[in-house]
Computed example of a mutant assay.
Amino acid sequence: MTRFRQRVLAVSRPVTLTLASALLLINLAVILYGVFMRYLVGGAPIWTDELSRFLIIGSVMLAAGAVWVEGGHMRVALIERLLPARLTRLLHLYQWLLTLLLATAGALFSYRYALSVAMFTTSGLGISRTLPMLSLPIGFALLAWQAFWYGPGPLPSQTEETA
Score class of each variant (00 low, 15 high):
M1D: 08
T2S: 09
R3W: 14
R3H: 13
F4W: 13
Q6P: 00
R7P: 03
R7L: 15
R7Q: 15
L9W: 11
A10S: 11
V11Y: 03
R13T: 14
P14N: 12
P14E: 10
P14C: 13
P14M: 12
V15S: 07
T16P: 00
L17K: 02
L17I: 02
L17V: 06
T18L: 06
T18Q: 00
L19S: 08
L19Q: 05
A20Q: 04
S21F: 07
L23Q: 02
L25H: 04
L25C: 15
I26A: 11
I26R: 05
N27R: 03
A29G: 14
V30M: 14
V35Q: 07
F36Y: 15
F36T: 15
M37N: 14
Y39R: 12
L40R: 06
A44R: 08
P45C: 03
D49L: 14
L51W: 09
S52Q: 05
S52E: 05
F54K: 00
F54W: 13
L55A: 08
I57V: 15
I57G: 08
G58Y: 01
V60A: 13
M61I: 14
L62P: 07
L62Y: 09
A64K: 05
A64D: 07
A66K: 06
A66M: 05
A66S: 15
A66C: 04
V67S: 12
W68I: 08
V69L: 09
E70M: 12
E70V: 00
G72K: 11
M74Y: 06
M74V: 15
R75H: 15
V76F: 14
L78S: 14
L78A: 15
I79E: 08
L82I: 02
P84R: 10
A85F: 06
A85E: 15
R86T: 12
R89E: 09
L93H: 00
Y94W: 07
Y94A: 11
Q95I: 05
W96M: 12
L100M: 11
L101P: 06
L102S: 12
T104I: 10
T104W: 07
A105D: 05
G106I: 04
A107C: 03
L108W: 06
L108E: 05
S110L: 02
Y111Q: 00
Y113C: 00
V117Q: 01
V117H: 01
M119K: 10
M119W: 04
F120R: 03
T121Q: 09
T122F: 01
S123L: 01
S123G: 00
G124F: 08
G124A: 08
L125C: 08
G126T: 13
I127Q: 04
I127D: 04
S128E: 10
R129N: 01
R129S: 00
T130R: 02
L131K: 02
M133Q: 08
M133K: 01
M133T: 01
L134N: 10
L134G: 12
S135I: 07
L136M: 14
F140S: 07
L142P: 09
L142Y: 11
L142Q: 12
L143C: 13
A147I: 04
A147C: 07
F148L: 10
Y150M: 03
G151V: 05
P152K: 06
P152L: 03
S157K: 09
S157Q: 13
T159D: 07
T159A: 05
E160S: 02
E161I: 01
